[in-house]
């Protein structure tokens, strides 16, 4: 049985494919650990009580709110943040579609939305608009009114389908 006293301990996890380690008190939220200890500042912290979705990251391939998880709980997990999406110097198809469709303005919520969209499209390669909107209901965006975001997600789904030779 592992115990971590309130003074804290080293936490190790795999961040965007690389094993990383940092210091966390038990009360340290995963979002703060990723930003302050590991420098993954693409993780944006909004409401800190699970409502806005800005801090969404993937833990073992599943989108979760990193303000509703403790860093110590992520010990030995695989954590992916928005920094994992780009392929080298090139933005991913999802990020490019966001840019083309004006799916962001201030961009604060975007990093979290991209992580949810990435998981969602992996499991729903051919979503309907209402499925996309339902997926986005876990995120607050105060700039776009969501129209551009929905368009971007549907466009990427279509692009990927035609690449796979289905259309």
């Amino acid at each position: 049985m592992e115990t971590i006293a309130k003074q804290g301990a080293r936490v190790q996890l795999q961040l965007n494919g690389r094993v990383r380690e940092g210091f966390a008190e038990p009360r340290t939220q995963l979002c703060d650990f990723l930003r302050h200890e590991l420098g993954a500042t693409g993780v944006h912290v909004g409401c800190e009580h699970g409502v806005c979705g800005a801090c969404t990251v993937q833990v073992d391939g599943k989108s979760v709110r990193s303000c509703l998880m403790l860093a110590v709980q992520a010990q030995d997990s695989r954590v992916d943040t928005v920094e994992s999406l780009a392929e080298g110097e090139l933005m991913s198809d999802l990020q490019l579609a966001f840019r083309r469709n004006h799916a962001l303005q201030c961009g604060f919520c975007t990093a979290g939305i991209l992580m949810s969209c990435a998981e969602f499209l992996g499991r729903e390669p051919d979503p309907t608009e209402s499925q996309v909107r339902d997926m986005l209901s876990g995120h607050l965006c105060r700039c776009t009114g969501y129209t551009g975001i929905v368009r971007a997600v549907l466009e990427v789904a279509n692009e990927r389908k035609s690449k796979n030779g289905e259309k």
Binding site: E2, T3, I4, K6, E25, P26, Q29, D32, H49, V72
Partner: peptide
């Protein structure tokens, strides 16, 4: 909004909980 301090324990068996 950050939690107040606490100790943390991660048991692997129900009996320990």
């Amino acid at each position: 909004m950050k939690p107040a301090s606490f100790d943390y324990v991660r048991p692997t068996r129900k009996a320990e909980v």
